[in-house]
């Protein structure tokens, strides 16, 4: 008997160690990135870094504005394109479709979410880039096809499975009683959906969109393949752009030889991380309150 209970206490100790390990890893990640980006933060003010729009590492000019702007715009385009159809589709699947359609959709979404981003990127190069070139030409914006809007379109497609499956979870968490009550009061199905179900799900939808935002904000390879990677502030949607993740990916092989360059790249990673953490924590807080994880 004492042996069994001491084994159990041992497992309690081990559990604590593993919990600590998770906390330590997160801290290490943040502190590590911060320490690495400190040299540039000491030399140049934050305001200068964020508002400067000239990126010439050899001359010691590190303006992050074009990258931050590109990343934000590309993410917003993606959400603008993806969110409305995703929410409509999720509502249809959860409120109107047959159980069978709903059930068969789930594995499809899972597979789609598992498709590697490089495949979406390849598809973007094959389809979206030529499309952008042609349409841009019609509209009088001659371009190479590798543009901000192309990045936004590829990203939009990538977040679709993610947002639909999260929104469906949110809709599933709406209590059945709420629907039944509305129907019993004589609402049509649509009125129930619109005034009761969607209202219940509003905050959850918001959280799903936030998580979609953070997913898109950090996406690297697919965006990098279609956005052109030109370190200049884009003037229109048909200009090439350069996102923060792409900046990191394109540079961290060669950054060691130029002073402050590696620090600047790590700062890019830190900015990315801080924004994503903030957005994620808000989203998780909302989902936690709705008892969805």
């Amino acid at each position: 008997m004492p042996r069994r209970s001491s084994l159990d206490s041992l497992s309690q100790v081990l559990a604590r160690i593993f919990l600590l390990l998770a906390v330590a890893t997160a801290l290490l990640l943040l502190v590590g990135l911060f320490l690495k980006s400190r040299p540039i933060l000491m030399r140049v003010s934050l305001w200068e870094l964020f508002s400067g729009d000239s990126w010439r590492p050899l001359r010691g000019e590190f303006g992050f504005f074009p990258f931050i702007l590109s990343t934000v715009v590309v993410t917003l385009i993606a959400l603008l394109l993806a969110v409305p159809p995703c929410l409509l589709a999720a509502v249809y699947l959860s409120e109107y479709s047959s159980r069978r359609l709903q059930q068969s959709f789930r594995p499809i979404l899972e597979v789609l979410a598992a498709i590697p981003s490089v495949i979406y990127g390849l598809w973007g190069v094959l389809i979206i880039v030529p499309l952008t070139r042609t349409v841009g030409g019609w509209l009088g914006h001659a371009n190479s096809g590798y543009t901000l809007i192309a990045g936004g379109m590829v990203l939009a497609i990538m977040v679709v499975p993610f947002i639909i499956s999260l929104s469906m979870e949110v809709l599933l968490a709406v209590p059945a009683e709420a629907r039944l009550t509305a129907l019993a009061l004589g609402c049509t199905r649509w009125e129930t959906t619109r005034h009761v179900v969607v209202r219940h799900a509003q905050r959850g939808f918001f959280a799903a969109v936030l998580l979609g935002f953070s997913r898109a904000f950090g996406e690297t390879i697919a965006v990098m393949m279609v956005i052109g990677n030109v370190a200049k502030t884009p003037r229109s949607l048909f200009d090439p752009a350069y996102t923060l993740p792409a900046l990191i990916a394109n540079n961290y092989g060669e950054m060691m030889s130029i002073p402050l360059y590696d620090s600047a790249i790590m700062l890019a990673a830190l900015i990315l991380m801080v924004i994503i953490i903030a957005v994620n924590l808000i989203a998780h807080r909302i989902l936690g309150k709705l008892e969805i994880r």
Binding site: A22, V23, T25, A26, L27, L29, G32, L33, L211, S214, F217, G218, E219, T220, P245, I248, A249, Y252, I265, M266, A269, L272, M273, I276, I277, V279, N280, L281, H284
Partner: peptide, 17 residues
Amino acid sequence: LALDVLWGTPSIVYGAF
């Protein structure tokens, strides 16, 4: 909380780290 943070961290940041 730490796991939520790590879960959301993009893979490029893990690459840099």
